[in-house]
Design a binder for these strands. Sequence first.
DNA 1: GTTTAATTGTTACATTATTCACAATCTATT
DNA 2: AATAGATTGTGAATAATGTAACAATTAAAC
Lengths: 217, 217
Amino acid sequence: MQKEKVCSKKKCFSPEVIKRLSLYLRDLKNLQEQEVEVISSDEITKMLDISSAQFRKDLSYFGEFGKRGVGYEVSFLIRELEKILGIYRWWDIALVGVGRLGSALLGFSGFPQFKLRITAAFDNDRKKIGKAISGVEVKSLEEMPAVIKKGGIEIGMICVPPQFAQSIAERMVGAGIKSILNFAPVSIKLPAEGIYIANVDMACELQTLVYFLNRRH
Amino acid sequence: MQKEKVCSKKKCFSPEVIKRLSLYLRDLKNLQEQEVEVISSDEITKMLDISSAQFRKDLSYFGEFGKRGVGYEVSFLIRELEKILGIYRWWDIALVGVGRLGSALLGFSGFPQFKLRITAAFDNDRKKIGKAISGVEVKSLEEMPAVIKKGGIEIGMICVPPQFAQSIAERMVGAGIKSILNFAPVSIKLPAEGIYIANVDMACELQTLVYFLNRRH
DNA sequence: GTTTAATTGTTACATTATTCACAATCTATT
DNA sequence: AATAGATTGTGAATAATGTAACAATTAAAC
């Protein structure tokens, strides 16, 4: 969506490539559950709407993972993608805003599979503080910096109403958060260099649907 | 993310352009609340991380909306963007899967502003059927086709566990749904031509964050 | 062992998207 | 009414991305 691009000294890949890799990984894991052992670029991309050439090209940036004339060994490719994407240890997440969406995310079962876990949740609503939601105790916002620092948490999730999002982002980054997934429907000005922020705005997604609905002939 | 592209006989714009327009609209509405009356491409794009040239070019695909030497009148540009995006009437949405995420979406306050409203919700859990969540009565899945047809609903939201998503999508399209916002972390094979599907996969978004976390120097 | 059918990895090409740069235009000032 | 400063709209230049084509490789069939 945005032109966000984060580089290191090494080769720099666009978020688009990385997002596709993570889609491949997701689907490969599903295939593994169905006990598929080998798959061709053609077959796997039939599910996604991506060309097989795109798939092979995406992988080629990182190495050679298939066998010509045969295809890709599912379990091997999963391991390699996990290495590329950094899924070699657990990644802790701090969530702020335990409203309906925040609670839903706390209970989302899709995270552990990718070694992602929300280990801390914060809110400023007295009624919520102290309660546990999906096994995570809700703490007061004042405790956030200390908890983030102590836990070495690097990923933050913002689920607060839009008017508070900017200030929460700044406090997160001040506490040591290095990347943010923002669900508040508002643009956040990055408070420091080298912080990666991704936005999920459901209303924007829906509006795009509406546009194309209107355009169908 | 995907290479999804929907064209009509008229000029065809990529979903990327449309998504940016809808971001502009969102931020313009915020500016309007702050009583900003005129804004330049430079100022508005400072918030987003998009270049001012990109902003002007995006608009130029659809017409001329600014005044040289001056900038853009906020209220006028809002009206024009609403026209372009199709926000001239209410758009009804059918939601399937009233779990935590589904419930959160039913209560999401960001939709009405863009004339989007969830008017029907479905689940197959007896305990949920009949209850009202955020003012919407949960109905059984069996009733879905009739309700969608009767209401002329064209937008569907899938919030069910991944293993059910494909079949729900097919039943939605069978009932007349023309575009789908899918929250299930699984690839959906489009059951018919001309159906637009957008995917929101939070685990994928987070994995992209993790990748860039790992790469920082 | 040779042939055949399949499928990768990669180069060259085509397309799409973004940025640049500046003429055109507007407002305010003198 | 002429000038200066601001800012748009846009064609041309550049960069990024995606596609197509095919040589290289593999495994299986004969």
